[in-house]
Design a binder for these strands. Structure first.
Length: 366
DNA sequence: GATCCGTGGGG
DNA sequence: TCCCCAAGGAT
C-alpha cells in the first residue's frame, strides 16, 4: 500500500541502525554460539534455532558439536546417530538435511562452507534466512537475514500493517532490513535485530521504554496495539485424535519399528499402533493396528495408561497397552526397521517424545 | 501460495 | 484449557 511506503520513508529520518548497534553492544547476551564465528558452528546454531527457542537450542548446541566437531565428522555419521543427537528437538528433517549438506560440502566444496549466499542456498536445509545468516555472521557478507523477530521489529518500527507473510510485505521488510545492514557490520546488525525482537520487542507485551528504537517507531507514535502488528492469518482449531499403541515385551525386550525416512518423525523409532476408528474401542484398535503392521495378533493386552501429546496441528490421546509375547511364540516379524531391543539398545535409538512418554508407563509396570 | 514438519514455554 | 509463538525449509 502507498500508506505503508510513506511510513517507511518517514521513519528513516531517525538513525535507527546506529541506535540499534549501540544498544546491542551493551545488551548482547552471552550465548554458546556467540563464542565463535567459525562457519560450521554458526551453521549448526542457525539450524538448531529454526522455529526453536534459544533456551532449547542451548541444550543441544554444545552436545551436538562435541559429538560432531567438524563438517567431516557430521558427514561420516549415520543418520541414526544424527537423529539421536537431535532427539526431542523436533523438525527432524533439519537433522537429516544437516547430514546431507555436510556430505555435499565435503564432496563439492572441499569440506568448507561456500562463502556466497547463492551456493549456500543450494545446500539442503539452507533457505533464504539460513544462507543470509551464515553469510553475514560467519563471512561478513552484506545480506539481510530476515526471520520472525526481524519481521516483528521492522513491521512495528515502520508501521507495516497487514499480513507479514504476504509477498509484498515480505519484500518491504527485507528491503528495510537490507537498508540497515548497509549502515553497519552485517553480522552484528542482523543479530541486533533478532536480539531486540526477542528481549524487548516481544510479541504480546513489548517493553517499549527500554527500546533504543522507540523514538522512530510508528507503532509507538501512533499508539497501535502491539498485538495487532505484525498481522498474521488466523489458525484453524487443532483437531483431536485418539490412537492406540502396543508395547510388546518378550524376555525383557521390546518390539520397535522405524518410521519411513521422510515426513512426520521420519527415521525415528516407535511402537506399533495407530488411530482409533470411529466405532472401535481402544483395545480393538490396538489389536487391529498391531496385526496390520506386524502380522502378529497380540494377546493379553492390558491398558497401562494414556498419554497426551500435542503436535502443532494435532492433539493426540495415546492409549498405551502392554502385551506379553511368549518366548516360544513367533511374535511380530523382524527385518529392516523392525527389531526387538533391550532397554540399553532402546535408549540408543532416536525416539519421538510421545513414544518416550509411553515407554515410561511400561517401565513403571516392571 | 498453501501445507507439512515437533516441541516447549508463556499468557 | 486454550491459544500463541518460535533465529524456516521443503514440496
Amino acid at each position: 500500500m502507498a500508506e505503508n511506503r510513506r511510513r517507511v520513508s518517514e521513519a528513516r529520518r531517525f538513525d535507527a541502525s546506529n541506535a540499534l548497534l549501540h544498544w546491542f553492544e551493551s545488551h548482547r547476551r552471552e550465548l554458546p554460539w556467540r563464542e565463535s564465528r567459525d562457519p560450521y558452528r554458526v551453521w549448526i546454531a542457525e539450524v538448531l534455532l529454526q522455529q526453536t527457542r534459544v533456551a532449547t537450542a542451548v541444550r543441544y548446541y554444545d552436545r551436538f558439536l562435541r559429538q560432531f566437531p567438524t563438517v567431516q565428522a557430521l558427514a561420516r555419521a549415520s543418520e541414526g546417530q544424527v537423529l539421536k543427537a537431535w532427539e526431542g528437538a523436533g523438525y527432524y528433517g533439519r537433522a537429516r538435511n544437516l547430514r546431507r549438506a555436510a556430505q555435499e560440502i565435503v564432496r563439492r566444496h572441499g569440506g568448507k562452507l561456500p562463502q556466497d549466499v547463492e551456493a549456500l542456498e543450494e545446500l539442503p536445509g539452507f533457505g533464504p534466512y539460513t544462507a543470509a545468516a551464515v553469510g553475514s555472521l560467519a563471512f561478513g557478507l552484506p545480506v539481510a537475514a530476515l526471520e520472525a523477530n526481524g519481521m516483528r521489529v521492522l513491521s512495528r518500527y515502520f508501521g507495516i500493517r497487514g499480513d507479514v507473510t504476504l509477498a509484498p510485505n515480505q519484500r518491504r521488510l527485507r528491503s528495510a532490513l537490507q537498508g540497515w545492514v548497509h549502515q553497519g557490520p552485517s553480522g552484528p546488525m542482523n543479530e541486533a535485530v533478532m536480539e531486540l525482537g526477542e528481549t524487548v520487542c516481544a510479541p504480546q507485551s513489548p517493553r517499549c521504554p527500554e527500546c533504543p528504537l522507540e523514538r522512530g517507531c510508528v507503532l509507538r507514535r501512533e499508539r497501535w496495539d502491539p498485538r495487532s502488528v505484525p498481522g498474521r492469518p488466523r489458525k484453524p482449531p487443532v483437531p483431536r485424535v485418539s490412537a492406540s499403541i502396543a508395547i510388546i515385551d518378550r524376555n525383557g525386550r521390546w518390539y520397535v519399528q522405524r518410521r519411513p525416512g521422510e515426513g512426520l518423525l521420519g527415521g525415528l523409532w516407535e511402537f506399533p499402533g495407530g488411530k482409533i476408528q470411529p466405532d472401535e474401542s481402544p483395545i480393538e484398535a490396538c489389536r487391529r493396528e498391531v496385526r496390520e503392521e506386524t502380522g502378529w495378533t497380540p494377546t493379553r493386552l492390558r491398558l497401562l495408561g494414556t498419554v497426551q501429546h500435542d503436535y502443532t496441528h494435532l492433539h493426540v490421546t495415546l492409549h498405551v497397552f502392554g502385551s506379553r509375547c511368549a518366548a516360544s511364540a513367533p511374535g511380530p516379524r523382524t527385518g529392516t526397521g523392525r527389531r526387538w531391543v533391550d532397554p540399553a539398545t532402546f535408549a540408543r535409538l532416536p525416539i519421538p517424545r510421545a513414544t518416550q512418554k509411553a515407554s515410561q508407563l511400561m517401565s513403571h509396570h516392571l
